[in-house]
Amino acid sequence: MPSLQKQREIVNKFFELIAAQKFDELLLLCSQDCKTHNPYITGGMADLTKAMTAANKEGRAQNPDASFVVRYALVDGNMAAAYTQLLNDKAKPGAGGLRQIHLFRFDEEKIVEYWDVTQQVTPDMPNAGGAF
């Protein structure tokens, strides 16, 4: 099993690649048979990266000032978790976006299992503390 520091580096690299829109390069961080548990994706990580590419293209067209931020990342044993935010407009956090929880399971220095849970955030949400 890789060190916790190495796993943290892999998770950080995963999100750096997302922010840089280099979705195909994410596959280099994953084992060939990496399982993804996104309920909307029919295949594995290759299909997930294709969906991310399409969603990013559509999202950038609708929200050119979007901002992707990693808020928290935790590593324990062979698991890691991260909380991310995608704001529709970085200058207007109240404009909505997405918040996500990502879970990773590692074997050696590769991601072998990946989960993501996404919540849509809208400006009219009732939480007085705000979604972000």
Rank of each mutant, 00 (worst) to 15 (best):
Y83E: 04
A73N: 05
L87A: 04
K90G: 14
M52Q: 01
K90Q: 12
Y83F: 13
A82G: 10
N56G: 10
R60T: 14
G59Q: 05
A66N: 10
E113L: 07
H102C: 05
Q62W: 10
P64F: 06
K57I: 14
K50C: 08
A61Y: 07
D65I: 05
Y83D: 03
P93F: 08
R71I: 12
D47M: 11
L98S: 04
A81K: 01
D76E: 15
F68N: 03
A82S: 14
A61M: 12
W115L: 02
Y72W: 12
A54C: 08
V69F: 08
E109C: 11
Y83T: 03
E109D: 15
A46D: 07
F106N: 01
L103G: 05
A66Y: 07
G94I: 04
E58T: 11
F104K: 00
A82K: 00
A55R: 11
A46Y: 03
L98P: 01
A95Y: 06
L86V: 11
D89W: 06
K50T: 06
V112P: 02
Y72C: 09
Q62F: 10
L86H: 03
K92L: 10
T49H: 02
F68Q: 02
F68P: 01
D47N: 12
L74A: 09
L103P: 02
A82R: 00
